[in-house]
Simulated assay, not measured.
Amino acid sequence: MALETDLGWAIRLVSSAFSRAAIESVAGLPGGPRGYLVLVALAGGEPPTQLALAREVSLDRTVMTYLLDDLEAQGLVTRRPDPRDRRARQVLITDTGRTRLDQVRQGLTAAEARVLADLDEQEAGQLRALLSKVAQTAQRESGVPVETDC
């Protein structure tokens, strides 16, 4: 098998290139890439509990607590008791958090464009969809939360 067709080689190279291109965009967020993932997850709908959020973004719950403390200190998220279980806390993105997320997404869009420059729009969409499927399988198969970067 040639190096160019090796999955591990390709994933490592693409991951490194994207990380280098994206790091500047998330540098100002508490937790960097982790903080970004939390804001993305929160922007999507119903406020999750801290534990559910940690599972969704594949972070250890202890790491999640410290990360949320930092995000909350900057006014990007807020926590409140869960009305269904007052022992649990829901996490909500604030208006400031949404604004900051939009700014970060603009930088990440530019980083993605640099990494995917040789693909047309359809190919880039297919790649995103396939990688998402593979990532979901990897997360499910691991059985253990996997800490992720952008």
Rank of each mutant, 00 (worst) to 15 (best):
S16N: 09
R34G: 12
A43L: 01
Q139R: 14
K133E: 14
A129V: 07
E46R: 13
Q106L: 01
T78D: 12
V104Y: 04
R55S: 15
V115N: 05
D69F: 05
R55W: 10
Q50E: 13
A27V: 01
T65S: 15
V115G: 07
G44Q: 11
Y36Q: 01
A129T: 12
G35Q: 01
G8F: 07
L127V: 11
A129L: 11
R98D: 11
T49A: 03
E56L: 12
I11W: 14
P83N: 06
T137E: 11
Y36E: 05
S15P: 01
M1L: 07
L51S: 14
V115S: 04
Q50W: 06
A2Y: 15
A111I: 00
L131K: 06
P81G: 04
M64V: 03
G31A: 01
P48N: 01
G75R: 03
G97F: 05
V26I: 01
D6K: 02
A2V: 08
L67F: 02
F18Q: 01
A135I: 04
S15F: 09
A54S: 15
A41H: 03
A129D: 14
R105C: 07
L51M: 07
L116C: 00
T5W: 13
R98W: 07
V63H: 15
A43Q: 10
S19K: 04
P33C: 03
A138P: 03
R61N: 14
L68D: 06
D149F: 04
Q50K: 05
L59E: 10
R61V: 12
S58M: 11
L71F: 10
A2P: 15
S142Y: 05
D60W: 01
G32F: 00
V115E: 10
E4A: 10
D70G: 02
R105K: 10
R87Q: 11
